[in-house]
Design a protein around this nucleic acid. Structure first.
Lengths: 229, 229
DNA sequence: CGTCTTATGTGTGCCAGCACACAGACGGGC
DNA sequence: GCCCGTCTGTGTGCTGGCACACATAAGACG
């Protein structure tokens, strides 16, 4: 699998929209964009796998990436669908192995790949940036805790409702969510068939509207109750 | 509930053993210990609860703290048992609410309580310290992913075996683990009775030895197989 | 406007492991 | 030595939701 490089300058605009870089001035940003290594990936490429010992921090510039875990017998949980601006591969920062942890492109992608030292040099020398990095990692912790909490404490119908609300909030309150039943199933550790049943019930209760590939939230308060608060 | 303050200087020795401060020189450390606010908590005290909007980062100096989630109907998952040197309350760093997330003392404790600004001032101004903080938060991510992974992908017997190995590693390879069946149950989202059954099976297979309050690992390879790798 | 792929709807067993309920056992405190 | 609280062993239903198996439909694509 070849990983073509791309012209760095083309992505300055994208970088400027990333929270991490919000506090940087244009010159510094351009300097970063010119020097940081960028890679282009095709859809379905594995960006890292558990065996992979690379100490690399990735910054998604374009496209979508899924982060998931696999078990020996074929089971799978999705932990996140990443959009441009997302940082990932952050365990690289600690030299920790990532047991059963994969990242895969869902579309063609453009991704910055930063070595551990680069990260410390470029990102962590500025307190404002440090704060941003901590925010990103912290958000990751929040996500994981949410997922853990619903899987441990709620049944499938509650998990579905809670997840719809959670995703909507993460997208800035967007009510028309582009996702398939299977996406939800793999996030809440259930099955596509079960999720379909639950969604149809929620639709019958007039809390959501279903279209192929989309779910529209119609009654947030109702969903909150269905989620068990 | 009163929160008595304690003499800061008494804990310099404790601080010195904390990874975060490993790179600091004695004078700086003393200066920190004298100025940082310290609190003493009694056993069973709630350090923070979901309603709590405090932007405070806690640093455990003495004692043990449990971090857990509660659901509306009484369910509970433990996410960690913290030992001296642990940082927690880190979502304070992002101003995120912590849904259903509690921290409670398991013993009498001495804890540094750092305001958000103090954190940025004292901790994040030194790149080496930043690295340490990231390592701690990253370890937290690893823990959460481990827990999520086993709960999503493994059945109860596998979860128990995997957890025993995980805890042992986290304790630096200690083979004699001080824990009750219930502790494990609450970590892997199962019940005390089920865990007891599994542990007895593992003992019958000569992989562990059981004593009241303790579990001794006898066959790590066997456990790894039992854990499904 | 057919064809083909991917998404969605629905039904039938079936079982891991929970809820519940006691009984015995260890150990600390007095 | 005795008492009592906490831990531990074990048994008996029950059930959520998974595994499996199709059937239908909505777009994509030429």
């Amino acid at each position: 699998m070849t990983i073509p490089t791309v012209q760095p300058k083309a992505y300055v605009d994208t970088l400027a929209t990333v929270p991490i870089f919000a506090s940087w001035d244009a010159a510094y940003l351009l300097s970063f964009a010119e020097q940081a290594p960028v890679r282009a990936y095709q859809q379905g490429a594995i960006i890292y796998a558990p065996e992979d010992p690379t100490e690399t921090l990735f910054l998604l510039a374009q496209g979508q990436v899924a982060r998931y875990h696999l078990s020996a017998d074929g089971g799978m949980v999705t932990t996140a669908k990443l959009l441009p601006g997302a940082l990932f591969g952050d365990m690289a920062l600690l030299g920790q192995a990532m047991h059963g942890h994969y990242a895969e492109t869902l579309t063609d992608c453009v991704i910055y790949a930063l070595a551990r030292e680069d990260v410390l040099t470029w990102l962590l020398s500025d307190v404002r940036v440090v704060e941003s990095v901590l925010r990103v990692v912290g958000e990751r912790v929040i996500d994981l805790e949410f997922q853990l909490q619903i899987m441990a404490l709620k049944d499938v119908p509650q998990r579905v409702a809670a997840t719809l609300l959670f995703v909507s909030e993460r997208q800035g309150g967007m009510l028309d969510l582009p996702c398939r039943h299977e996406d939800i199933a793999s996030f809440i550790n259930s099955t596509r068939a079960t999720v379909t049943k639950v969604l149809n019930q929620l639709q019958a209760d007039d809390m959501i509207a279903l279209r192929r590939g989309f779910i529209t939230l119609r009654d947030l308060d109702g969903l909150r109750i269905a989620a068990g608060e």
